[in-house]
């Protein structure tokens, strides 16, 4: 009882920071519920990634191997993970609410006939959890019943696991999958090429909104600021809706949730759906020509200005600061 299986997402031999967040949140949950955190690395050759994950303090790492786990696919991964839950008798399965975590965990929950809590932000001692609803305008205290519970955590609400003094033991297992039941076929992954930090991992995020007026302006006006600050680039849903930038840059209720040290909102009015994705940032700066824009109600520093003048000026000012 109380054991937590942590699904350790990885791609091409590497794992994102959100996997370390899951390991830490899983360890925290196991501690509160009197069990151990077991990280599960799935793949056709999971050994190398499993050895990496083993450096981060999980009680144990399971490397779950099967040819059908070569690429991530919900049906094969849910089948293998569900079989492992039964085999280990784990009470919880947990991962971070990334695109992959969101795709996999509900399918797993249904397979286990278990309840699922999405994107929790806190684990309470009384057995309850906290999760946002209504774009973060309500925080729900919830309870999960039954022998198995499935949980995703919000990446910004938990710290990443730190390297531990000694490596976790690694157990190698062959996954139990009935290949005849698999129906999904991986075709390709078209990775967005970028030298910038990942949106959910960056120390600074600079986001643009509809105020930028075009995709071209994201390039010529906003990107110099993004790069001068060594930041990740984000966008409001309005900018995505208008076709200025791809959806994987979207920050907000229906996009990514970020909490960097500094969030710079440029030409973003600050609809509640956008605030839901960035209001936990440590420092928020906003540039908008409308002084009534709701973004100013959450900004630590607000500048009422025409962004087409202010942003290039800011690039020059930052260069001056750097030169000192």
């Amino acid at each position: 009882m109380g054991d937590v299986l942590v699904f350790a997402e990885h791609l091409g031999g590497h794992f994102p920071k959100t996997t370390l967040t899951a390991v830490n949140a899983g360890t925290e949950l196991a501690k509160r519920r009197g069990g151990s955190a077991i990280a599960v690395v799935m793949g056709d050759a999971p050994d190398a990634v499993a050895a990496e994950i083993a450096k981060y303090g999980a009680a144990k790492v399971i490397a779950l191997k099967h040819p059908a786990l070569k690429n991530y696919l919900a049906d094969a991964h849910a089948a293998a993970l569900a079989a492992l839950v039964k085999k280990t008798g784990a009470e919880f399965v947990l991962t971070t609410a990334t695109a992959e975590g969101k795709d996999l965990m509900p399918r797993l929950a249904a397979r286990l006939d278990a309840p699922m809590a999405s994107e929790i932000t806190a684990i309470n001692d009384d057995g309850t959890y906290v999760r946002p609803m209504y774009a973060g305008n309500a925080m729900a205290t919830i309870e999960l019943e039954g022998p198995v519970k499935v949980i995703t955590v919000r990446g910004t609400a938990f710290d990443a696991a730190k390297p531990a003094p000694s490596a976790s033991p690694v157990e190698n297992l062959d996954a139990e999958i009935d290949s005849a039941t698999l129906k999904q076929e991986f075709v390709s992954f078209n990775q967005t090429k970028s030298d910038r930090p990942q949106l959910t991992e960056a120390r600074i995020v600079v986001s643009g909104g509809r105020g930028l007026k075009s995709g071209e302006n994201f390039k010529v006006v906003l990107e110099p600021l993004v790069d001068e600050m060594g930041a990740a680039m984000g966008a409001s849903r309005a900018a995505v809706d208008a076709g200025f930038v791809p959806n994987d840059l979207q920050v907000g209720q229906t996009g990514k949730v970020v909490a960097p040290e500094l969030y710079v909102a440029v030409g973003i009015s600050g609809a509640i759906q956008h605030l839901a994705g960035m209001k936990d940032s440590k420092i928020i700066a906003a540039i908008n020509k409308d002084e009534e824009a709701p973004i100013f109600s959450v900004a630590d520093y607000g500048l009422v200005a025409d962004l087409f003048k202010a942003v290039p000026e800011m690039v020059e000012e930052l260069k001056k600061v750097k030169a000192h």
């Binding site: 809590a117 309850t128 305008n137 205290t141 999960l144």
Partner: peptide, 15 residues
Amino acid sequence: KLKIKKLTAPPKRQA
């Protein structure tokens, strides 16, 4: 098996 015990308003960020 998922029960909502209560809702609370989130902490407000000050301008």
